[in-house]
Design a protein around this nucleic acid. Structure first.
Lengths: 144, 144
DNA sequence: ATAGATGCAAAGAGTTTGCATAGGT
DNA sequence: ACCTATGCAAACTCTTTGCATCTAT
């Protein structure tokens, strides 16, 4: 059975607390604040376990590595800021998109990613310099 | 300036002729039919050059490696078949999605990916076995 | 005490780069 | 002849795996 370790708890908590999808590297950085010697292999192993658990959800954006977020959310999409690269949840959805596909194709699912500038970057520096790129410590608006 | 080599021509032609986005591996396989000893490094280098040229366009689907297609197309989206994994163009678009983003965010661009079953897989084997996975030689409907 | 979990380092997959050679112009 | 393009192999990044050790139960 599955054991409760400091590492696993730190990793799960990091993702729960983030409020936005985190990359494995970001998860490591945040979880290391709780567990000093935490290794990347442990992060990857636990991400996989927590995914199977459905404790967390996988977020895949086009052309970017995997991110992970709390699986509490229902169907939603994502917004990536072109300045700070952070990803935010978008809880609006245009609904059924099956009419977009070519005739004869069956559509079961869709993914939508919006790109632009987030609130922080728009106000902080309109189209100029950006907030910190790792941005692990920020808890910006998530659009809930 | 840029030279016209057998390799470059074979790579460009492979992408033009495909009618759907190809992975670097698929490009290599197709282009090798024209140029025997073609190496992967050459494929990658030329993909980059042709991208700069805007001769080809980069297609990024969530959680998948890069694909490349002829840049002749205008704004469009993509459909990935969950059986054969091939990607097809979708020329319909729901239009402006900026109202989906959280307030205070500015939306400049969007990506949509549809998932389901393509015409071939639906008719060939309704929800059972799939056509060849590399599928480099097929030219299925592209939804134009 | 036992079996799962961890950390490190090595192994993989995909992509990029250095370098000597081949080949357009 | 010049200088870009190629092929090979090594380097790199991200992720996974093997193995000895640690630790929750």
């Amino acid at each position: 059975m599955e054991r409760s370790t400091r590492q696993r708890t730190a990793i799960r908590d990091a993702i729960e607390a983030a409020g936005r999808p985190l990359s494995p590297q970001e998860v490591l950085e945040v979880a290391r604040l709780q567990v000093e010697g935490l290794g990347m292999a442990t992060v990857y192993r636990n991400l996989k376990l927590l995914l199977d658990d459905a404790s967390i959800a996988l977020v895949q954006l086009p052309g970017d590595g995997p991110r992970y977020e709390s699986s509490v959310h229902d169907h939603h999409h994502h917004f990536q800021c072109k300045q700070c690269q952070r990803v935010f949840d978008v809880h609006q959805c245009p609904g059924d998109l099956s009419k977009l596909a070519p005739p004869g194709f069956s559509v079961e699912r869709h993914e939508i990613t919006l790109y632009g500038q987030c609130k922080d970057c728009l106000s902080a520096a309109p189209a100029t310099s950006a907030p910190s790129k790792s941005a692990v410590h920020n808890h910006p608006p998530t659009g809930h």
